[in-house]
Amino acid sequence: MTETRAAEIRTVGILGAGKLGTVLARLAVEAGYRVLVAGSSDPSRISLTLEVLSPGAEATTADAVARESDIVILALPLGKHTTLSTESLHGTTVIDAMNYWWEVDGARDNVAPPEISTTEVVARHLDGARVVKGFNHMGYHDVDERGLPSGSAGRRAIAIAGDDAAAVDAASALIDALGFDPVAIGDLATGRNLEPGTPAFGANVPADELLALVEMATADA
């Protein structure tokens, strides 16, 4: 696919039909996007789940998500990133919403070296994709509380980290449309300040408070 700009997002693809994936799918449908969702197996196995939790979202295959979406969200277990097709996602704006969990992924060294952020590892695998980090620090249950229109008092923020300015802009537009204030915090390496164990992880706060939490992690580094 060609470079995605913010105004060109019409179809949102989500790889992963778990708790976060279905919440984001519902919010994206409500925001007026066409939404495609792929699980780990036959689309028919998630059709009923989407019908109940994300009405309006379409169950499909990972290949169709990659082929037809203007922006793709990764809502899979982190260790599954190596199963993603580098070729099919080449040139696509990809939002990595995944986190490392030892209960699911095993020893971190088996998934991502400790000296770099997990999203940098994902970006290396998806060579040629425009990868940003986002939607990872706020719990799915907090995301599910629904966002607010732009400019609303108390609107909560979602942080983004990325090396590609156009991809950050596109991700920001999606986050805004879903009802949250997008907060760009820096490059992909800076995304480590959004990972589990950092002050910002779990944050469900307005933009100024989120930035303060990110800065705390930077000061402690």
Rank of each mutant, 00 (worst) to 15 (best):
G134P: 01
T92E: 06
A173F: 08
T119D: 04
T119S: 10
K80P: 00
F201V: 05
P206T: 04
L48R: 15
M138H: 02
G91C: 10
G151F: 06
V205G: 05
A7Y: 06
A203R: 02
D163I: 11
L84C: 06
F201A: 04
A212E: 14
P43T: 08
R146P: 01
G151N: 05
V205N: 03
D208P: 00
A200G: 10
L50H: 12
G197A: 06
I46W: 10
S40P: 02
I71G: 02
P77D: 03
A221L: 12
T218K: 15
D169C: 09
V23H: 12
E145N: 07
R5M: 14
T93V: 15
R156P: 04
P114K: 14
E30F: 07
S85G: 12
I46Y: 06
S150T: 15
R34N: 07
A62M: 07
G39D: 07
M138A: 07
A170Y: 13
R124H: 12
A38D: 00
F201W: 14
D169Y: 09
A17V: 05
G139K: 08
G32N: 09
S117R: 07
S47M: 13
I71C: 03
D142T: 12
G128A: 09
A59S: 10
Y100A: 05
D42C: 08
T60Y: 00
T119R: 01
P206G: 00
A171Y: 08
L76K: 02
L213R: 11
F135M: 09
T92D: 00
R108H: 05
S117C: 01
D163K: 07
P206W: 01
M1G: 15
P55Y: 02
G202E: 00
N99K: 01
R124E: 13
K80H: 14
L213H: 04
E58S: 11
L178K: 05
E209G: 13
I116Y: 06
R108E: 15
G32K: 09
G16I: 00
L194F: 01
D187I: 01
D127I: 07
L174P: 09
A177S: 11
A57D: 08
A17E: 05
D109L: 11
E145I: 00
G56R: 01
T60Q: 00
S152W: 09
I71D: 01
Y140D: 13
A171M: 11
K19F: 13
H90P: 01
E115M: 04
S54E: 10
E87I: 07
A97Y: 01
H81Y: 15
I71K: 03
S54W: 12
L210G: 03
E209S: 08
D164V: 12
A59Q: 04
A212P: 09
L211I: 14
R146A: 09
I71N: 03
A123N: 07
A59I: 02
E30L: 14
G147I: 03
